[in-house]
Amino acid sequence: MRISYPVAPGDFSNAGKVSSTIKSLLKQLNISAKDVKRMVVAIYEAEVNMVAHSYGGQIVCTLEADKAIVEAIDTGPGIPDLDLAMTEGWSTATPEVREMGFGAGMGLPNIKKHTDDLAIETGKDRPTHINMLFRLEGATDGS
C-alpha cells in the first residue's frame, strides 16, 4: 500500500499533522506499538525538517506486512554537507525557528536512530530524498 501526504514549507503550526495521520493509520493496521512509536518519531523529524528547511514536498509511505518504507521527498534547496548535518547538535535553523522549539540539530541523527536503514540523496541546490526503512516485528502484544 502506498500513500503520500503533502508538506508545506514554513507551516510550523501544522508540523506534526502528517506524522499524526500516519500514526492513526499504522495503529489500525495492528502494527506493534514499538514499531509505530519509532516510525512516528522518525517521520515527525523528517516532516519538521521539511517544514523548516525545504521548499516543500511530500512524505510517501509504502507499507508491506514485514516492512515499511517512508520517503521524505522535497524540492530543494538540498543539504550542502550531509556529514555535518548528520552530527548531533549541528543545525542551520534560523533563530526564529529555534525560538519555536525546533532546530536542536537532532533531526537527522534522530531519524537514523529510529530506522533500520537510512539512505539520503541530496546536495547543494538539489532536492533531498530521504529513504527510511523499518523492518516490522509483526502483530502487537500491547507492550
Partner: peptide, 17 residues
C-alpha cells in the same frame, strides 16, 4: 484491539488499501 482492521498485518494492509 477492536479498532484495528485485522489482527494480521498483511490482511490489515490489504483492507486499508
Amino acid at each position: 484491539y477492536s479498532l484495528t482492521l485485522d489482527q494480521d498485518v498483511a490482511t490489515a494492509i490489504k483492507k486499508m488499501e
